[in-house]
Design a binder for these strands. Structure first.
Lengths: 227, 227
DNA sequence: CGATAGACATTTGTATACAATACCGTCAAG
DNA sequence: CTTGACGGTATTGTATACAAATGTCTATCG
């Protein structure tokens, strides 16, 4: 089990800075100084630097030509590609998971799937609960995939702002479809069918992309209409 | 006094430690202490820690249950998967590159390809030169792919020991085939055919995998025969 | 004899001070 | 005006000292 409240100052810094960036309190492109981040997270610059390294690796923070820190700013192309890569890698993870997953893990996925259904079925749908369980679901698959490399690479493709923006825009029918896909994944795992699992997962991510990009477009149009 | 130029100490540490690990002076699974690494790289522990973070991210170094450092030890499955992921990601990079690559970059690839041919054709083939130019070739494609994410992820899949072990085992015919594939990639880029580029690249990596795994097997048999 | 608590040694984590470097406004020369 | 050199200021980089934690060994008790 993971320890959420880690005593390491560098982990505290990581969480706080990540939160700071993802919550939107920091503008994309804005400069960040180590000292400012140290103040925000309540520790000294040393652990902040370690945290920044990690965030930099996830491309949430970028370093300028020389060493100054800025909040990352993603282009439309960046986001498109994130989904493409996620499709490939999560598809691969699902494929591996289908070969390695334990009965216990499949049961766990079933329980989570029940919670997902519950979150969708109440009215209004509990999107935040849906997101939390969705994340757990994907984490278990990643774990079952038994690949340190995937575990290292996927976090940089599953940035919260995109995830959140996607799911908060789901209509109920879309959430239901998503829940159905989770069920189908479980079926593929139960059958130990790696091709099936890969295909379902790829399509799952791909659909999320289209939901995302259509709502992003709608948003943009609304912004332009307000000017 | 150590260095005429003044690159960052953390970069020096990164290079030295990486070298130390990859050169085989460090046994897989061996423990590394920060102080030892500081001695090796001639800087203090602070930059060493930053270097270690990077190497840890590339999975060249791993952290134990609690925070002690060890030289990574790859299983056969790890290596298999590295090649699978490389195939996917480099294939994707080639696909993107086919859409974005500039004329200048294609010319550059042509020049490198000439050097590759030259390295293969002399006798005995200059494997080390081949490797260097091969790396440049792939770097240019990665650059042309214009994807910070790919640029961040691929380094953790292209670990020198595997690359070196693969290429040093190439027979001349295999090197020639590799050079031919590079030419075909250039053709695909010139035609701006992203599907072609992806297919050639995927097959290129896949073939490297089989060369690698067959020679690894041969090595293992020889070792067993010696016992 | 085995288990275990506790002291000691080793290693990692953090804060701070100071050094090196990059940025930016100012001013002088062309 | 533009340009380029200069210097002050802000920011990052490094070393060191010390704190916290982890591992290990031994002595003692059951």
């Amino acid at each position: 089990m993971e320890n959420a409240t880690s005593p390491r100052a560098s982990d505290i810094a990581y969480d706080k800075i990540r939160q700071f960036v993802l919550s939107g309190r920091a503008e994309p492109g804005q400069q960040l100084t180590e000292e400012q981040l140290a103040r925000i997270s309540g520790v000294s610059r040393t652990p902040v630097r370690e945290a920044v390294r990690r965030l930099e690796n996830e491309l949430l923070i970028v370093r300028s030509d020389s060493k100054r820190l800025f909040v990352a700013d993603w282009s439309a192309d960046d986001i498109d590609e994130m989904f493409v890569l996620r499709g490939m890698l999560e598809g691969h993870a699902a494929s591996r998971a289908a070969r390695n997953i334990s009965g216990r893990q499949i049961e766990e996925l079933g329980r989570i799937s029940d919670l997902l259904d519950a979150a969708v079925r109440c009215s209004p749908p509990d999107v935040s609960e849906f997101l939390a369980q969705n994340r757990r679901f994907h984490e278990i698959i990643l774990e079952a995939a038994c690949s340190p490399r995937l575990s290292a690479m996927l976090p940089m493709l599953v940035e919260q702002p995109v995830v959140r923006r996607t799911a908060t825009q789901y209509k109920t029918e879309e959430l239901l479809q998503s829940a159905r896909e989770h069920r189908e994944l479980i079926a593929a795992f139960t059958a130990r069918d790696s091709h099936w699992a890969r295909a379902v997962m790829t399509s799952h991510i791909r659909r999320a992309f289209h939901v995302f990009s259509s709502t992003a477009k709608r948003h943009k149009e609304q912004r332009q209409a307000n000017d």
